[in-house]
Write a protein that binds this DNA or RNA. Structure first.
Lengths: 141, 141
DNA sequence: GCAAACTAATTAATATGTTAACTAAGTTTT
DNA sequence: AAAACTTAGTTAACATATTAATTAGTTTGC
């Protein structure tokens, strides 16, 4: 069986698209000393309030072992707090702290500028279509 | 400025979609002791023949420092060869070896089965549309 | 021709990805 | 209630991502 041409392979296409989008955003995040994973974790936590580690890992698309390290790191920077769940001793509850929320709020405008530029060049309708199609891919699992 | 809801953020959507697609494929690759990065590198090399490291890195969406280590690893497994370019002493020329090509050819059918299942569930037309939209994203850079 | 600027690749340092093994806490079975 | 099973989180080991610095080779400008 012949391999699919690499430029029509979905995983590589997704990766290339992601690199295109993330590259300029990463620069912004870098200026604020945040990695994109830390950024995802903080954004999800900012959006959802109190969460346990499993929810947070799934929502932010970070694996559990990575999240453990990221949490440790962000906790040391007082960006978030970590405490055991009283009802279920296995769970760890996470909550964003003012410093974390402040980071989100100060970096977001810069990131939005990049998104907006992307959106203008790409087209709002196409962007919406793309997001819908991507959402459908995730639904398959 | 309010952050974009994380479920409509393009980078996260791309990442989630990629995870959905890659998860079953990774299992296949794991059974053959190949990481997905090594797989990408070998596939691109198999498709394109002789390439220098820079081309290979760009085409396979791997950063140069990672490629250096991946090449070292694959070279030790005699999956590919590495030699200096006679005309430009800075460049390194890579070529796939029979063992590498054999790996591609033996793993590809299994990967294709996964792709096919995905394609059947998702729809060929939608898949094609998605690939086109993703391609257009990359064109923006 | 040669120094400056540039380019390809590697190395270094830190963070994350990935799988497996492990610990602790909770749930189910009998 | 104790054993077996399950689940959440962590730790471990290795591979890759990311940026910066370094090395070696090439090209440019004067």
């Amino acid at each position: 069986m012949q391999p699919t041409k690499t430029d029509r392979a979905l995983p590589l296409a997704l990766l290339r698209a992601r690199e295109t989008v993330m590259s300029p955003i990463r620069k912004v995040l870098k200026d604020h000393d945040v990695t994109d994973q830390q950024w995802r974790v903080l954004r999800v936590l900012h959006e959802n309030g109190l969460m346990d580690a499993k929810e947070l890992a799934q929502s932010s698309c970070v694996l559990a072992p990575s999240l453990t390290r990221i949490i440790k790191n962000l906790e040391e920077k007082t960006m978030l707090t970590r405490r055991a769940d009283g009802k279920d001793g296995r769970r760890v509850l996470l909550q964003i702290l003012p410093l974390g929320a402040q980071l989100i709020e100060s970096v977001t405008p810069e990131v939005q500028v990049v998104y907006q530029g992307l959106n203008d060049k790409y087209g709002t309708q196409k962007m919406s279509d793309l997001l819908d199609l991507l959402h459908d891919v995730v639904e398959l699992s």
